[in-house]
Design a binder for these strands. Sequence first.
RNA 1: UGGGGCGUGGCCAAGUGGUAAGGCAUCGGAUUUUGGUUCCGACAUUCGGGGGCUCGAAUCCCUCCGCCCCAG
Length: 352
Amino acid sequence: MAKKVFVGMSGGVDSSVTAALLRDQGYDITGVYMKNWSKDLPGMICPWKEDYQDAKRVAVQLGIPFKMYDFQTEYRQRVVDYMLGGYKAGITPNPDIMCNQEIKFKLFLDTALSDGADMIATGHYARSVDGELHTAANVEKDQTYFLYRVTEDALQHSLMPIGEFETKAEVRSLAKKFSLATAEKKDSQGICFVGKVGIKDFLLHELGQQPFGVIINQDGVIIGQHDGAIFYTIGQRHGLDVGGGLPYYVIGKDMAKNEVYVTTDLQDKNLWSKNLQLSNIHWINGIPEPTKTYQVRTRYRAPLIPCKVSPCKTKKDGEVSILLSEEVRAITPGQSAVIYDDNRVLGGGVVI
RNA sequence: UGGGGCGUGGCCAAGUGGUAAGGCAUCGGAUUUUGGUUCCGACAUUCGGGGGCUCGAAUCCCUCCGCCCCAG
Protein backbone atom coordinates (compact mmCIF):
# COMPACT_ATOMS: atom_id res chain seq x y z
CA MET A 1 0.00 0.00 0.00
CA ALA A 2 1.55 3.28 -1.13
CA LYS A 3 1.91 6.01 1.42
CA LYS A 4 -0.61 8.77 1.17
CA VAL A 5 1.08 12.12 0.79
CA PHE A 6 -0.71 15.47 0.76
CA VAL A 7 1.31 18.01 -1.18
CA GLY A 8 0.88 21.67 -0.38
CA MET A 9 0.51 23.17 -3.83
CA SER A 10 0.78 26.95 -3.99
CA GLY A 11 0.44 27.23 -7.72
CA GLY A 12 4.17 27.79 -8.16
CA VAL A 13 6.76 25.72 -9.98
CA ASP A 14 8.45 24.24 -6.96
CA SER A 15 5.39 22.71 -5.38
CA SER A 16 4.16 21.56 -8.80
CA VAL A 17 7.37 19.67 -9.41
CA THR A 18 7.21 18.32 -5.87
CA ALA A 19 3.86 16.72 -6.62
CA ALA A 20 5.05 15.33 -9.95
CA LEU A 21 8.21 13.82 -8.52
CA LEU A 22 6.50 12.16 -5.60
CA ARG A 23 3.78 10.78 -7.82
CA ASP A 24 6.44 9.21 -10.01
CA GLN A 25 8.14 7.82 -6.96
CA GLY A 26 5.03 5.80 -6.31
CA TYR A 27 3.36 7.77 -3.55
CA ASP A 28 -0.38 8.14 -3.41
CA ILE A 29 -0.55 11.89 -3.94
CA THR A 30 -3.26 14.40 -3.15
CA GLY A 31 -2.73 18.04 -4.01
CA VAL A 32 -3.90 20.66 -1.54
CA TYR A 33 -4.19 24.38 -2.02
CA MET A 34 -4.06 26.28 1.24
CA LYS A 35 -6.22 29.35 1.07
CA ASN A 36 -4.56 31.58 3.61
CA TRP A 37 -5.44 34.97 2.32
CA SER A 38 -7.79 36.25 -0.35
CA LYS A 39 -8.38 39.88 0.50
CA ASP A 40 -7.64 42.49 -2.11
CA LEU A 41 -5.66 45.49 -1.01
CA PRO A 42 -5.67 49.01 -2.38
CA GLY A 43 -3.59 48.80 -5.53
CA MET A 44 -3.42 45.04 -5.60
CA ILE A 45 -5.80 42.26 -6.40
CA CYS A 46 -5.05 39.15 -4.42
CA PRO A 47 -3.92 36.48 -6.86
CA TRP A 48 -5.21 33.58 -4.80
CA LYS A 49 -7.67 32.51 -7.46
CA GLU A 50 -5.05 32.29 -10.18
CA ASP A 51 -2.74 30.43 -7.85
CA TYR A 52 -5.53 28.07 -6.93
CA GLN A 53 -6.31 27.45 -10.57
CA ASP A 54 -2.67 26.93 -11.47
CA ALA A 55 -2.35 24.39 -8.68
CA LYS A 56 -5.52 22.67 -9.75
CA ARG A 57 -4.42 22.65 -13.37
CA VAL A 58 -1.22 20.87 -12.41
CA ALA A 59 -3.15 18.38 -10.29
CA VAL A 60 -5.34 17.58 -13.25
CA GLN A 61 -2.30 17.19 -15.47
CA LEU A 62 -0.79 14.80 -12.97
CA GLY A 63 -4.03 12.94 -12.52
CA ILE A 64 -4.07 13.38 -8.76
CA PRO A 65 -6.95 14.33 -6.48
CA PHE A 66 -7.03 17.97 -5.47
CA LYS A 67 -8.60 19.85 -2.64
CA MET A 68 -8.52 23.19 -0.91
CA TYR A 69 -8.09 23.89 2.78
CA ASP A 70 -9.40 27.22 3.95
CA PHE A 71 -7.05 28.47 6.65
CA GLN A 72 -7.87 32.16 6.38
CA THR A 73 -9.10 32.54 9.94
CA GLU A 74 -6.12 30.81 11.48
CA TYR A 75 -3.69 32.53 9.16
CA ARG A 76 -5.07 35.88 10.11
CA GLN A 77 -4.80 35.09 13.81
CA ARG A 78 -1.49 33.28 13.92
CA VAL A 79 0.48 35.03 11.20
CA VAL A 80 -0.99 38.39 10.30
CA ASP A 81 -1.92 39.44 13.81
CA TYR A 82 1.47 38.29 15.06
CA MET A 83 3.10 40.41 12.40
CA LEU A 84 1.00 43.49 13.08
CA GLY A 85 1.56 43.10 16.80
CA GLY A 86 5.28 42.93 16.27
CA TYR A 87 5.38 46.08 14.21
CA LYS A 88 3.20 47.90 16.71
CA ALA A 89 5.65 46.90 19.43
CA GLY A 90 8.51 48.36 17.44
CA ILE A 91 10.23 45.16 16.40
CA THR A 92 10.60 43.62 12.96
CA PRO A 93 8.69 40.35 12.88
CA ASN A 94 9.20 37.55 10.41
CA PRO A 95 5.79 36.33 9.25
CA ASP A 96 7.08 33.63 6.95
CA ILE A 97 8.74 31.82 9.82
CA MET A 98 5.47 31.98 11.70
CA CYS A 99 3.60 30.75 8.64
CA ASN A 100 5.74 27.64 8.48
CA GLN A 101 5.53 27.03 12.20
CA GLU A 102 1.82 27.57 12.60
CA ILE A 103 0.21 26.92 9.25
CA LYS A 104 2.17 24.69 6.91
CA PHE A 105 3.80 22.39 9.45
CA LYS A 106 1.12 22.42 12.10
CA LEU A 107 -2.35 23.23 10.85
CA PHE A 108 -1.85 21.80 7.39
CA LEU A 109 -0.06 18.76 8.74
CA ASP A 110 -2.70 18.05 11.38
CA THR A 111 -5.53 18.61 8.94
CA ALA A 112 -3.97 16.38 6.34
CA LEU A 113 -3.27 13.60 8.83
CA SER A 114 -6.81 13.64 10.11
CA ASP A 115 -7.91 13.69 6.51
CA GLY A 116 -6.24 10.37 5.79
CA ALA A 117 -2.70 11.39 4.88
CA ASP A 118 0.38 9.62 6.15
CA MET A 119 2.66 12.52 5.32
CA ILE A 120 2.73 15.95 3.81
CA ALA A 121 5.13 17.44 1.27
CA THR A 122 6.08 20.99 0.37
CA GLY A 123 8.15 22.70 -2.27
CA HIS A 124 10.70 24.10 0.13
CA TYR A 125 14.40 24.27 -0.65
CA ALA A 126 15.38 22.24 2.37
CA ARG A 127 15.78 18.59 3.29
CA SER A 128 13.85 16.63 5.84
CA VAL A 129 16.03 13.73 6.93
CA ASP A 130 14.77 11.37 9.63
CA GLY A 131 13.28 14.13 11.70
CA GLU A 132 16.21 16.45 11.12
CA LEU A 133 16.20 19.59 9.04
CA HIS A 134 19.07 19.84 6.59
CA THR A 135 20.03 22.58 4.19
CA ALA A 136 19.11 22.34 0.54
CA ALA A 137 21.58 21.17 -2.07
CA ASN A 138 20.97 24.54 -3.69
CA VAL A 139 22.86 26.83 -1.37
CA GLU A 140 21.55 29.96 -3.06
CA LYS A 141 17.91 29.10 -2.58
CA ASP A 142 18.14 27.35 0.76
CA GLN A 143 15.06 28.16 2.83
CA THR A 144 15.94 26.48 6.11
CA TYR A 145 16.14 29.92 7.70
CA PHE A 146 12.37 30.07 7.48
CA LEU A 147 11.92 26.54 8.77
CA TYR A 148 13.87 26.40 12.01
CA ARG A 149 10.72 26.45 14.13
CA VAL A 150 9.32 23.29 12.60
CA THR A 151 9.21 20.37 15.03
CA GLU A 152 11.01 17.07 14.78
CA ASP A 153 7.67 15.31 14.69
CA ALA A 154 6.49 17.46 11.79
CA LEU A 155 9.71 16.77 9.93
CA GLN A 156 9.16 13.03 10.41
CA HIS A 157 5.95 13.51 8.50
CA SER A 158 7.28 15.82 5.78
CA LEU A 159 8.90 15.41 2.40
CA MET A 160 10.81 18.17 0.62
CA PRO A 161 12.15 16.68 -2.59
CA ILE A 162 13.06 20.04 -4.10
CA GLY A 163 15.81 20.31 -1.52
CA GLU A 164 17.83 17.75 -3.47
CA PHE A 165 18.37 19.90 -6.54
CA GLU A 166 21.42 22.05 -6.88
CA THR A 167 19.91 24.60 -9.21
CA LYS A 168 16.59 26.19 -9.90
CA ALA A 169 17.20 25.46 -13.57
CA GLU A 170 16.92 21.75 -12.84
CA VAL A 171 13.57 22.27 -11.21
CA ARG A 172 12.36 24.36 -14.11
CA SER A 173 13.51 21.85 -16.67
CA LEU A 174 11.74 19.09 -14.79
CA ALA A 175 8.60 21.19 -14.83
CA LYS A 176 8.98 21.45 -18.58
CA LYS A 177 9.64 17.75 -18.90
CA PHE A 178 6.40 17.09 -17.06
CA SER A 179 4.77 19.79 -19.22
CA LEU A 180 3.42 21.45 -16.10
CA ALA A 181 1.28 24.52 -16.57
CA THR A 182 3.42 26.37 -14.06
CA ALA A 183 6.78 25.64 -15.72
CA GLU A 184 7.30 29.23 -16.79
CA LYS A 185 5.62 30.93 -13.87
CA LYS A 186 7.70 33.58 -12.21
CA ASP A 187 8.96 32.89 -8.71
CA SER A 188 6.88 34.49 -6.03
CA GLN A 189 8.51 36.77 -3.54
CA GLY A 190 7.65 39.11 -0.77
CA ILE A 191 5.11 38.26 1.87
CA CYS A 192 2.47 36.41 -0.06
CA PHE A 193 -0.47 38.56 0.94
CA VAL A 194 1.33 41.87 0.82
CA GLY A 195 2.68 41.34 -2.67
CA LYS A 196 3.76 44.37 -4.56
CA VAL A 197 1.81 46.70 -2.32
CA GLY A 198 4.77 46.85 0.03
CA ILE A 199 4.97 46.40 3.75
CA LYS A 200 4.56 50.06 4.57
CA ASP A 201 1.37 50.47 2.61
CA PHE A 202 0.07 47.27 4.12
CA LEU A 203 0.77 48.50 7.64
CA LEU A 204 -0.81 51.85 6.82
CA HIS A 205 -3.88 50.05 5.58
CA GLU A 206 -4.13 47.78 8.62
CA LEU A 207 -2.94 50.08 11.38
CA GLY A 208 -3.74 53.50 9.98
CA GLN A 209 -1.66 56.67 10.02
CA GLN A 210 1.04 56.76 12.64
CA PRO A 211 2.23 59.73 14.68
CA PHE A 212 5.04 61.69 13.08
CA GLY A 213 8.34 62.00 14.87
CA VAL A 214 11.90 63.12 14.39
CA ILE A 215 14.94 61.47 12.86
CA ILE A 216 18.12 62.11 14.81
CA ASN A 217 21.67 61.55 13.58
CA GLN A 218 24.77 60.31 15.39
CA ASP A 219 25.53 63.81 16.65
CA GLY A 220 22.14 64.19 18.23
CA VAL A 221 20.97 66.59 15.57
CA ILE A 222 17.43 66.42 14.22
CA ILE A 223 17.83 65.95 10.50
CA GLY A 224 14.34 65.10 9.42
CA GLN A 225 10.91 63.80 10.17
CA HIS A 226 9.47 60.29 9.90
CA ASP A 227 5.87 59.29 9.50
CA GLY A 228 5.82 56.55 12.09
CA ALA A 229 8.67 54.81 13.86
CA ILE A 230 7.08 51.41 13.36
CA PHE A 231 7.84 51.58 9.65
CA TYR A 232 11.59 51.63 10.13
CA THR A 233 13.88 48.77 10.91
CA ILE A 234 17.50 48.51 12.01
CA GLY A 235 19.95 48.72 9.15
CA GLN A 236 17.45 50.32 6.82
CA ARG A 237 18.83 52.86 4.41
CA HIS A 238 16.09 53.80 2.00
CA GLY A 239 12.81 55.55 2.60
CA LEU A 240 14.06 57.99 5.17
CA ASP A 241 13.79 60.92 2.81
CA VAL A 242 16.86 62.55 4.30
CA GLY A 243 19.76 63.30 2.04
CA GLY A 244 22.99 65.18 1.88
CA GLY A 245 26.46 63.72 1.99
CA LEU A 246 26.56 60.06 2.90
CA PRO A 247 23.65 57.66 3.12
CA TYR A 248 21.92 57.29 6.46
CA TYR A 249 21.27 53.96 8.09
CA VAL A 250 18.81 53.34 10.89
CA ILE A 251 20.63 52.26 14.06
CA GLY A 252 17.77 52.28 16.49
CA LYS A 253 14.48 53.72 17.56
CA ASP A 254 12.66 54.69 20.70
CA MET A 255 9.01 53.79 20.45
CA ALA A 256 8.07 55.73 23.59
CA LYS A 257 9.66 58.92 22.32
CA ASN A 258 8.73 58.03 18.75
CA GLU A 259 12.26 58.81 17.60
CA VAL A 260 14.31 57.13 14.89
CA TYR A 261 18.10 57.18 15.15
CA VAL A 262 20.38 57.10 12.15
CA THR A 263 24.04 57.32 11.30
CA THR A 264 26.21 57.92 8.27
CA ASP A 265 29.06 56.04 9.88
CA LEU A 266 29.05 52.45 8.72
CA GLN A 267 31.50 51.66 11.51
CA ASP A 268 29.07 53.00 14.10
CA LYS A 269 29.13 50.82 17.21
CA ASN A 270 25.38 50.61 17.28
CA LEU A 271 25.28 49.02 13.86
CA TRP A 272 27.51 46.07 14.70
CA SER A 273 27.26 43.33 17.22
CA LYS A 274 28.79 39.94 17.94
CA ASN A 275 26.65 39.04 20.90
CA LEU A 276 22.99 38.20 20.51
CA GLN A 277 20.28 37.42 23.02
CA LEU A 278 17.60 35.09 21.78
CA SER A 279 14.19 34.39 23.22
CA ASN A 280 11.51 31.90 22.21
CA ILE A 281 14.16 29.29 21.62
CA HIS A 282 13.26 26.35 19.48
CA TRP A 283 15.61 23.40 19.10
CA ILE A 284 14.52 20.76 16.66
CA ASN A 285 16.29 17.61 17.78
CA GLY A 286 18.30 18.41 20.82
CA ILE A 287 19.92 21.11 22.83
CA PRO A 288 23.20 22.50 21.48
CA GLU A 289 26.42 21.86 23.34
CA PRO A 290 27.95 24.95 24.91
CA THR A 291 31.49 23.90 24.07
CA LYS A 292 30.96 23.27 20.40
CA THR A 293 31.34 25.75 17.59
CA TYR A 294 28.28 26.08 15.41
CA GLN A 295 27.31 28.49 12.67
CA VAL A 296 24.60 31.11 12.84
CA ARG A 297 22.57 32.96 10.26
CA THR A 298 20.95 36.20 11.33
CA ARG A 299 18.88 36.86 8.24
CA TYR A 300 17.73 35.03 5.14
CA ARG A 301 20.57 34.35 2.70
CA ALA A 302 23.17 35.85 4.99
CA PRO A 303 26.49 34.02 5.25
CA LEU A 304 26.95 31.56 8.10
CA ILE A 305 29.11 32.84 10.93
CA PRO A 306 30.91 30.60 13.43
CA CYS A 307 29.45 30.96 16.91
CA LYS A 308 29.07 29.52 20.38
CA VAL A 309 25.75 28.97 22.09
CA SER A 310 25.44 29.58 25.81
CA PRO A 311 24.30 26.72 28.05
CA CYS A 312 20.65 26.01 27.62
CA LYS A 313 18.32 23.77 29.54
CA THR A 314 15.12 23.80 27.62
CA LYS A 315 14.27 22.67 24.14
CA LYS A 316 11.80 25.49 23.65
CA ASP A 317 10.70 28.88 24.94
CA GLY A 318 13.90 29.57 26.83
CA GLU A 319 16.50 32.24 26.32
CA VAL A 320 20.04 31.84 25.20
CA SER A 321 22.94 34.03 24.16
CA ILE A 322 25.05 33.60 21.08
CA LEU A 323 28.63 34.73 20.74
CA LEU A 324 29.70 35.25 17.14
CA SER A 325 33.26 34.96 15.90
CA GLU A 326 32.90 38.29 14.14
CA GLU A 327 30.68 41.33 14.25
CA VAL A 328 27.52 41.27 12.20
CA ARG A 329 25.72 44.28 10.89
CA ALA A 330 22.23 45.36 11.83
CA ILE A 331 21.07 42.69 14.20
CA THR A 332 17.37 43.33 14.44
CA PRO A 333 14.97 42.55 17.28
CA GLY A 334 12.13 40.39 16.06
CA GLN A 335 14.20 38.68 13.42
CA SER A 336 15.49 35.19 13.99
CA ALA A 337 18.95 33.76 14.45
CA VAL A 338 19.20 30.20 13.20
CA ILE A 339 21.93 27.85 14.37
CA TYR A 340 23.52 25.32 12.03
CA ASP A 341 25.84 22.42 12.60
CA ASP A 342 27.16 22.27 9.07
CA ASN A 343 24.21 21.10 7.02
CA ARG A 344 21.94 20.39 9.93
CA VAL A 345 19.67 23.01 11.41
CA LEU A 346 19.64 22.86 15.19
CA GLY A 347 17.02 25.53 15.64
CA GLY A 348 17.31 29.06 16.89
CA GLY A 349 15.40 31.88 18.45
CA VAL A 350 14.13 35.40 18.13
CA VAL A 351 16.54 38.29 18.63
CA ILE A 352 15.70 40.45 21.62
C1' U B 1 27.25 101.16 8.35
C1' G B 2 32.37 99.61 6.93
C1' G B 3 35.61 94.90 5.78
C1' G B 4 35.51 89.72 4.21
C1' G B 5 32.97 85.27 2.40
C1' C B 6 29.15 82.74 0.00
C1' G B 7 24.81 81.71 -3.26
C1' U B 8 25.48 75.13 -8.67
C1' G B 9 19.01 70.07 -9.31
C1' G B 10 15.13 68.43 -2.79
C1' C B 11 20.08 68.04 0.16
C1' C B 12 25.60 67.78 0.32
C1' A B 13 29.28 69.08 -3.33
C1' A B 14 33.22 69.38 -7.71
C1' G B 15 34.12 72.71 -11.43
C1' U B 16 37.77 79.98 -12.02
C1' G B 17 36.91 80.89 -20.02
C1' G B 18 35.50 75.85 -23.79
C1' U B 19 30.34 74.05 -23.50
C1' A B 20 27.43 71.35 -15.72
C1' A B 21 31.86 65.48 -11.80
C1' G B 22 30.36 62.69 -7.75
C1' G B 23 27.44 61.41 -3.40
C1' C B 24 22.59 61.53 -0.70
C1' A B 25 17.47 61.67 -1.48
C1' U B 26 13.68 60.48 -5.09
C1' C B 27 11.66 57.43 -9.12
C1' G B 28 11.98 52.86 -12.13
C1' G B 29 14.09 47.96 -12.59
C1' A B 30 17.04 43.43 -10.95
C1' U B 31 18.07 40.13 -6.80
C1' U B 32 15.11 38.04 -2.53
C1' U B 33 9.14 33.06 -0.02
C1' U B 34 9.94 38.41 6.10
C1' G B 35 11.58 43.40 7.01
C1' G B 36 16.06 45.13 5.48
C1' U B 37 20.54 44.86 2.61
C1' U B 38 22.92 44.86 -2.30
C1' C B 39 22.97 45.84 -7.61
C1' C B 40 21.48 48.44 -12.27
C1' G B 41 19.10 52.60 -14.71
C1' A B 42 16.77 57.55 -14.80
C1' C B 43 17.18 62.38 -12.78
C1' A B 44 20.00 70.62 -13.87
C1' U B 45 19.84 72.92 -22.00
C1' U B 46 21.43 74.92 -16.64
C1' C B 47 24.78 77.26 -12.34
C1' G B 48 20.49 83.60 -6.97
C1' G B 49 18.18 87.84 -10.66
C1' G B 50 19.48 91.39 -14.52
C1' G B 51 23.09 93.51 -17.78
C1' G B 52 28.11 93.49 -20.12
C1' C B 53 33.12 91.74 -22.31
C1' U B 54 34.04 87.28 -25.43
C1' C B 55 33.71 82.99 -31.11
C1' G B 56 32.43 80.90 -26.39
C1' A B 57 31.30 81.94 -19.25
C1' A B 58 28.80 78.58 -13.69
C1' U B 59 33.66 80.47 -14.24
C1' C B 60 35.81 87.76 -16.05
C1' C B 61 33.27 92.84 -15.26
C1' C B 62 28.87 95.88 -13.45
C1' U B 63 24.50 95.88 -10.74
C1' C B 64 20.45 94.12 -7.78
C1' C B 65 18.65 90.33 -4.19
C1' G B 66 19.66 86.79 -0.23
C1' C B 67 22.66 84.48 3.53
C1' C B 68 27.05 84.14 6.74
C1' C B 69 31.38 86.06 9.46
C1' C B 70 34.43 90.03 11.52
C1' A B 71 34.34 94.95 12.92
C1' G B 72 31.14 98.72 15.39
